[in-house]
Nucleic acid binder design. Structure first.
Lengths: 231, 231
DNA sequence: CGCCGACTGTCACAGGCGTGTCACAGGCGG
DNA sequence: CCGCCTGTGACACGCCTGTGACAGTCGGCG
């Protein structure tokens, strides 16, 4: 699709003046349009007014913190969100993913690194809008509701198909069992059951070349699962 | 529909100034010609004057709302219509399809996503514009309203014919029982009845070579049915 | 380096759900 | 009045699905 891509329009929410101006400058030089806000409240307001393509969001903000901003954005909007966090803190990663972020970058971050992530997330978004998605030898046709591997049809059961569709809508993003339960099964409480695991397992058996060492549906320990885009 | 214009000509009807200008800019950058209107009345007037190839239409408009605009357009014109709806609200989707829209997109929408949908709808339109469609040994003549198999006429009942026509308008696309009910029977609620199934079954009996293992009208488990184009 | 705990993979089974199928009654038009 | 079409409900049948127990694996900590 987009060869002639429009200039991405970003909203950067970060309270530290030095970091904010530095990133703004850097991202502008990389060819983005950038709007900035220093607090969560301002950020949410700007979001409504300016309608950016993507939000870069610091987790540590005065007032409402980044996770909460993220959740609020997600209640009404579907645009991509990249979280900035101070440390490589596993808890932050989990909470960040739970609150609906698309990607996650550890500070201090160089402008070009952030730029690369931004472009990756935007590219991911374009892929979602099309009716078919490709992951290695796997092709998912969302309109025909079929999945083919090396050109031949896979017979997925309804639940397997829905699971794969939800995963494929968020390529590269780890989804917790909770999230998958809500998305695929539409009920909230995962007791202590292997429900999601079992379904992932059945899906892998049909989708992966070597189900015992999966390359597409990876497990993220302590979190859940993630559908990878092969390089 | 439109002539062989290289550049698609769109009419965007949206009352929110920020969104309208943002989308107009974005769509222009994606290579479309764009005309805009802020109200349904203006939109209908512009439609008559400028004859666009496609209409992008917000559902929430002051005065006559998007659904009504959609219905009025459909009374005289057959050009593709894409509805913009506020949230992934099922009710909107239902009403949207009933009022004759070809596709719907959930706001807020990124320009590049909308662009992809626009191109998809325009592509689909080109296919439909032909009066006859062929699926294996089956030939559907939309202007004569006849269906032949291996050259000989099939006697389809009115409902069977409409079902086949709706399926053939979207070849290769899985349609849910809900969607079929709305398209063919024009009412909303499928209780727990085998209505669609029964009609599909009767249609298969006339259309398929081996009704017990259909190759044209495939069932998509957990979803609905799909008319396949044989390779 | 090895143990231990927690997390995940695996499997079989019974119940349930979705779909195909059919017969029938009412409706509609000829 | 008659015949065909249509919608409905009941039923049967397979396949899917959720569950729980157990085995295997990974990571951390001493």
């Amino acid at each position: 699709m987009g060869q002639n891509e429009a200039v991405p329009f970003l909203l950067l929410i970060e309270d530290d003046d030095a970091i904010r101006t530095a990133l703004e400058l850097s991202l502008s030089r990389q060819g983005h349009r950038v709007a900035t806000a220093a607090t969560g409240e301002d950020g949410l307001k700007l979001l409504k007014e300016q309608r950016p393509d993507l939000v870069v969001l610091d987790v540590m903000l005065p007032g409402i913190d980044g996770f909460e901003v993220c959740r609020r954005i997600r209640r009404t909007d579907q645009l991509p969100i990249i979280l900035l966090t101070a440390r490589s803190d596993d808890i932050d990663v989990v909470v960040g993913l739970e609150s609906g972020a698309d990607d996650y970058v550890v500070k201090p971050v160089q402008g070009r690194v952030l730029d690369a992530r931004i472009r990756a997330v935007l590219r991911r978004g374009e892929r979602e809008s099309t009716d078919s998605a490709t992951f290695g030898s796997l092709v998912i046709d969302r309109s025909a509701m079929t999945v083919t591997k090396n050109g031949e049809d896979l017979q997925l059961t309804p639940t397997e198909l829905r699971l794969l569709l939800e995963l494929s809508r968020r390529p590269g993003q780890a989804l917790s069992r909770q999230q998958l339960l809500r998305l695929v099964w539409e009920h909230d409480y995962l007791g202590d059951s292997r429900l999601v695991d079992a379904c992932v397992q059945r899906l892998r058996a049909k989708v992966e070349d070597v189900p015992s060492s999966p390359t597409l549906i990876r497990t993220v320990r302590g979190v859940g699962y993630r559908l990878d885009v092969p390089a």
